[in-house]
Nucleic acid binder design. Structure first.
Lengths: 122, 122
DNA sequence: CGGCATCCCTGTGGATACTG
DNA sequence: CAGTATCCACAGGGATGCCG
């Protein structure tokens, strides 16, 4: 058994980072960028349902944490490409594996829910 | 490359489950229960900083999804033990691996942040 | 096009009190 | 002890409008 990370503290720094990569949009950004680099509005269309504000905010957070690179080309009209860093790639693979695993368990989860809800009605 | 789970839809069911296991307290509950089963208030003390309401809510959600078992013993005073199901154990290991990886990357993240913040000041 | 600022609303989640 | 119920504060996050 490896030594326990102390994520038990609400203020623990790794907790914050963990929330960045598993957050609603953070996860989707990382997942999308696994395939290739994206422009801002490409990313927005690819993910779907994300507001400009949240996408910008998410991208900034992940860039600041060192998970992705922002390449702003000084042209008119502006063109900004986002891609994963090496660390970002690892993070993306991790959360992707988790997402994938969850999706595989979905039938079991649905069944568990029906069982749970059924028991409460009877 | 395995086929992509479609987590891109905000309404996607697996998104919901993913949020349950990676949520603030969900993660900590799963992490704690990897070691052994816990009673309600044991868990509350172990995790630290979690309100009764949120712990109860988190436990219910994870139980309903089939990640953990609730064993309520009909005694006075009440005694309720929580433990992982087989699926819960797998989920816990996954999120734990992720948390652990994040913690290892923490120095790199801090460095990236300093670099990012420094560039904005200069 | 790719943001940033502002406004505003909803829902998460904490504190407290009560019950079986 | 192990919850439920209620209230409420605050922040996450959406919509809109403006700027480089």
């Amino acid at each position: 058994m490896t030594e326990a990370p102390n994520v038990n503290r609400a203020t623990c720094p790794s907790r914050i980072v963990l929330e960045h990569v598993t957050s609603r949009w953070g996860l989707l950004v990382l997942a999308a960028l696994r395939e290739r680099s994206f422009r801002f509005s490409e990313l927005r269309r690819e993910i779907g349902g994300v507001s400009e504000k949240m996408l910008a905010q998410t991208l900034q957070t992940l860039e600041r944490d060192g998970f992705l690179l922002r390449d702003a080309k000084p042209v008119i009209p502006p063109r900004v490409d986002y891609s994963l860093t090496v660390m970002g790639r690892e993070a993306a693979d991790q959360v992707w594996a988790l997402a994938h695993w969850v999706e595989r368990q979905l039938p079991a989860v649905v069944e568990a829910r029906e069982s749970y809800d059924g028991a409460r009605v009877s």
